[in-house]
Computed example of a mutant assay.
Amino acid sequence: MSPASEDAVPVPPSPSPRPWGSYIVRVLVVAACYYLGARLGLLQALVNDQVTPLWPPTGVAVLALLVGGLRLWPGVSLGALVVNASLSDLPSVLAICAGNTLAPVAACLLLRRAGFRLELDRTRDAMALVLLGALAGMAVSATIGSAALLASGVVGGDRFWSTWAVWWTGDALGVLVLVPLALALRSPRWRRPAVRRWVEAAALVGSLTVVMLIATTTDVRLMYLVYPFLIWAALRFQHLGTAPCALIATTLAARGAAMSTGPFAGMDLLVRMVGLQAYNGTAVLTALLLSTVIAERNAARAAIERTVEQLTEVVGRYQPAPLGDLLPPRRPEGP
C-alpha cells in the first residue's frame, strides 16, 4: 500500500435527501401528471377550448391527495396554472386554478369525513366516491370556473349553465373513471390466472368496446347494452374488471357526446351533458356497487372458511376418549 493511500481520509457516506427535497419531487410529479392529463382532456374541448366533457386531471388530483395527503395540493395548483396560463387573462387563470385546486381538496375532505377506504371493498366506499368525491366535490370547480369565464366575458349569460354542465360533467367523469382504475391497480391481489381467464378478459373488453362504438355512433338507442358487460366484469373479476370496463364505457360515451353522434345527436349542449352525466354516473355506480357487494361476499365467505378450519383444528386437538375406556371393567363371572 502506498503512503498516499495510507494517509487518505475515508469518504463519508452521502447524506440522505432532505424531506423537503422528496416533497418537491412529489409535487412536481403530480403537476406533470396533471398537465399530461389536461393535454389529453383538451382534445375534446367544447367551450372556449378549455371546457371538456372528460377532464382526467381531476382524477389525477383526487388520487394524489388521497394517496399522498392533502399537502400535495401545490402540485395540483402548479399543473392547473401551467395548463390555463395561455388560455385566458390573469384573473380568470387564478380563479380557475383556485377552483381546480379546491375541488379535489373538498372531495378528499368529504371522503375522509365519510370514512372512505382506498381498498374500495365496501358498498359505502363506492357510494361515497360517486356521490361525494365526484358529483359533490367537482361542483366546486365547475361553479368557480364558469363564474370566472362569465366575469371575463368569455361566455355570455345565456351559456353559463351549459358551460357549468360541461365543466361539472368533465371533472366528475375524470374522478369516476381514473380513481377506481388506479385504486384497483394500486394493490391488486395478483395471482397466476389460467390462460382461459386471460381469454375471457380479452373477450370481455373487446366485446364491450365494439358494443359501445356501435351504441355511440348509431341512432338506435343501445347504450343500455353496457350493463350486461359490467355485470359480467363484476361477477368474474370484481374491481380489476369493472374499472377498465367503466373507463371504456364512459370514455366512449363522452366521445359520442362531444361529437354529437348516436343517442346524443341533435341535442342541445346542456341536454347532452345532463344525459351524459346521468349515464356515466349510473354506469359507474352500478359497476362499483356490484363489484363491492361481490367483494364483500367473497370476504365473508373466506372468513367463514377460516373459522371452520380453526374449529376443525381445535376439535382435532381435543378428541374424546373412546367409549370403551370410559366404562368400568367387567367383573369376572363365577363358575
Rank of each mutant, 00 (worst) to 15 (best):
A202Q: 04
P322M: 08
I231H: 08
T52E: 00
L40N: 02
A107N: 05
R191Y: 09
S88D: 14
D219S: 14
N280E: 01
L46G: 02
G157F: 11
E309M: 13
V284C: 02
R197M: 12
V51P: 01
D121W: 03
R113T: 14
L78S: 06
L247T: 11
V82A: 10
A194P: 11
L285D: 07
L149E: 04
T218Y: 07
Y35C: 08
V314T: 15
V76H: 00
T58V: 10
V105F: 05
R330A: 15
F160E: 05
G69R: 05
A136M: 10
P328T: 08
A139P: 04
L40C: 04
G316V: 10
V27T: 12
P320N: 13
R122F: 05
Q44A: 12
T242D: 11
L150H: 09
G115S: 07
L120D: 00
A300W: 10
A257C: 09
A278T: 13
P263S: 08
A85M: 11
I96T: 05
T282M: 10
I214P: 02
V67C: 06
A287S: 07
R189F: 09
L129Y: 06
A107L: 06
N84H: 06
G59D: 03
L132Q: 02
V76G: 01
L42T: 07
R272W: 06
G206T: 09
S162Q: 14
L118A: 08
G170D: 02
V226S: 10
L46T: 06
V11C: 12
F116P: 00
D158H: 15
Y318C: 15
E200A: 15
I248S: 10
V284T: 12
A31S: 05
P57M: 04
V76R: 00
A45D: 04
Y35E: 07
R189A: 13
A151G: 14
L326C: 13
G115R: 08
L326D: 15
A233F: 09
V62I: 09
T312M: 14
A64I: 01
V175K: 00
P17D: 12
V210D: 03
T123I: 13
V177C: 05
A165G: 08
V315S: 15
Y318T: 15
L173Y: 03
R117A: 14
D171S: 07
T143N: 06
M223C: 07
W168F: 06
W198I: 09
G281W: 03
A142Q: 02
P13C: 06
A64Y: 00
L111E: 02
T261V: 10
